[in-house]
Design a protein around this nucleic acid. Structure first.
Length: 498
RNA sequence: GGUCAGUUGGAUGAGUGGUUUAGUCACUGGUCUGCAAAACCAGCUACAGCGGUUCGAGUCCGCUACUGACCUCCA
């Protein structure tokens, strides 16, 4: 049994609902992944981190989770370019590369960035291009059910007919009549019965590189089909959670629902979850606006808008400081604030070992109770639709408590220290997925020797200080500072960090 | 134009009717310290506007203003 009752905001119901999995103790979760035709930007980090938190938390409270996140490497049409041209193919032609070479290149870079952000890999990462056969079968099912028609080698979804039997707009709240009335000038419009019909299979233009044979034409699958197909293949006819960016709500997710209802006669997803956008200068950061900053540019500080580089953990912490359903505005000031705050947090965590246990007393019992109350509040925050800002807020309370103990303003016993360590690790490391970037991979014998050498220097400095030899003392500290070490004097001696 | 969301201090960002409206960053004063850094203590007169419901509204309802998202590829 799950140890906590999680509540999530279900876009379908527009309220928070208690989460109940279809199969006890198991969760099936599908999240729309990236289209790998360019470097990932800050906006891509949001859903990856948001659903990483959900993935981690579900596991923490006792679920076995199958997390599927797709790689879109085919199928997205571009309307500003030639008719029916595929995004991947277009990029490939520009760069004179094989389409799959482009896919591999950007996918590798995406994985590297996700790894840096400490985003856990999903259980399955299926490619759209690897499921063409399944997608063709899916189109056929919709055709057989009578909710699609063939036109000039392409297959379109018949929204008007679908709306007679099902509720088109159930997720996005759109009125189907208004959609039908809306006239838009899009490519391929003449082939459609209604402007709002969408492609299930698209006949490839002669210059189109990526295409596959099908009963209707040499072509490629439509925009929304891969998610319907692959979620069913790996998670079943019904599954628990479908996530993605809010900008995918319409038309992408609405069309997914339409496809599954048309093919299966019923919806397949129990909870739809959407993360909000990251903005820059008040506008959504996105490819179409050309105002995005890539993750690598953040890590290296190479974009003109950046006054300095920001580490992956700073980006992660910055994103977690806001609730996932709120927009979050990028600015150097906000990121610097996150960087400093994170540093304080990580130093607080590292300081746990510097607390000295006092004998158990009424005062230490009160301290322990405070820690347990903070833990309870953090579970409440997580259970309440993953309110990570509140979790962070409570972790700061814990940092403050640790510092008070070290400063002698509070007392803690051995049990309290153990509890602090456990609570901190559970929420900061396991659930929020933060890691100390400075000590990453620091376990070798060489590192031990290195640490010993620095400690030796500080011992020498301590002796100099004892004899009031400030010149030598400051020389050591300043030279170490030049090398990137921060030395802090405390009552129990000096500490250092890189 | 349609649909939906939002507007909280110097910045950011929680707050799902009820004693003091989280937390972080910045800033100010103090404690500690050889100095520095960190930490600790104390501050920093914020709920877009108007009206309504209520014993009580940041929170619920209505109107106004402004901003944004979606309606087209988008995380």
């Amino acid at each position: 049994m799950a140890t906590q009752q999680l509540y999530v905001y279900n876009t379908l119901a527009r309220i928070k609902q208690p989460f109940k999995s279809i199969v006890p103790d198991r969760v099936g979760m599908y999240v729309c992944g990236p289209t790998v035709y360019g470097d990932g930007h800050l906006g891509h980090a949001r859903p990856a981190i948001t659903f990483d938190i959900l993935f981690r938390y579900l596991q923490h409270i006792g679920y076995k989770v199958r997390y599927v996140r797709n790689i879109t490497d085919v199928g997205h049409l571009e309307h500003d370019a030639d008719e029916g041209e595929d995004k991947i193919a277009k990029k490939a032609r520009l760069e004179q590369k094989e389409p799959m070479e482009v896919v591999q290149y950007y996918m590798n870079r995406y994985h590297k960035a996700m790894d840096a952000l400490n985003v856990l890999p999903p259980s399955i990462e299926p490619h759209a291009s690897g499921h063409i056969i399944e997608q063709i079968a899916y189109v056929q099912k919709i055709l057989d059910a009578g909710f699609a028609y063939v036109s000039n080698g392409s297959v379109y979804f018949d929204v008007k007919k679908y709306a007679e039997k099902f509720h088109y707009g159930i997720l996005s709240g759109r009125n189907v009549n208004e959609l039908i009335d809306t006239t838009r000038e899009l490519d391929g419009q003449s082939e459609k019965r209604e402007a709002c019909d969408f492609a299930l299979w698209k006949k490839a233009a002669p210059e189109h590189i990526m295409h596959w044979p099908s009963p209707w034409s040499e072509g490629f699958p439509g925009w929304h089909l891969e998610c319907s197909t692959m979620s069913e293949k790996y998670l079943g006819e019904e599954f628990d959670i479908h996530g993605g960016g809010l900008d995918l709500l319409f038309p992408h997710h609405e069309c997914e629902i339409a496809q599954t209802c048309a093919a299966k006669g019923h919806q397949t997803v129990h909870y739809w979850m959407h993360n909000n956008m990251i903005t820059i200068d008040g506008k959504k950061m996105g490819k179409s606006y050309g105002n995005f900053i890539t993750l690598d540019e953040f890590f290296n500080g190479t974009h003109p808008k950046l006054t300095q580089p920001y580490s992956p953990m700073t980006i992660r912490f910055f994103i977690l400081m806001a609730h996932y359903r709120s927009t979050v505005d990028f600015s150097n000031e906000a990121l610097q604030s996150a960087e400093k705050g994170m540093k304080r947090m990580m130093e607080g965590y590292a300081s746990i070992c510097r607390m000295k246990a006092s004998p158990a007393s009424a005062e230490t019992a009160a301290t322990l109770k405070t820690i347990e109350e903070l833990e309870e509040k953090m579970y409440e925050a997580m259970n309440d639709d993953l309110t990570t800002p509140i979790v962070i807020s409570n972790l700061y309370e814990l940092v403050s408590l640790i510092n008070k103990v070290i400063d002698g303003h509070a007392k803690i016993d051995e049990a309290g220290i153990q509890k602090t360590q456990q609570v901190f690790k559970t929420f900061l490391i396991d659930i929020l997925g933060m890691k100390d970037e400075n000590v990453a991979g620091a376990d070798s014998a060489k590192t031990e020797a290195f640490k010993g050498a620095v400690d030796l220097l500080l011992d020498v400095r301590a002796k100099a200080k004892a004899s009031k030899d400030w010149a030598t003392s400051d020389l050591i500290r300043n030279k170490l500072a030049d090398l990137g070490f921060v030395v802090k004097d405390t009552k129990e001696g000096a500490t250092w960090s890189l």
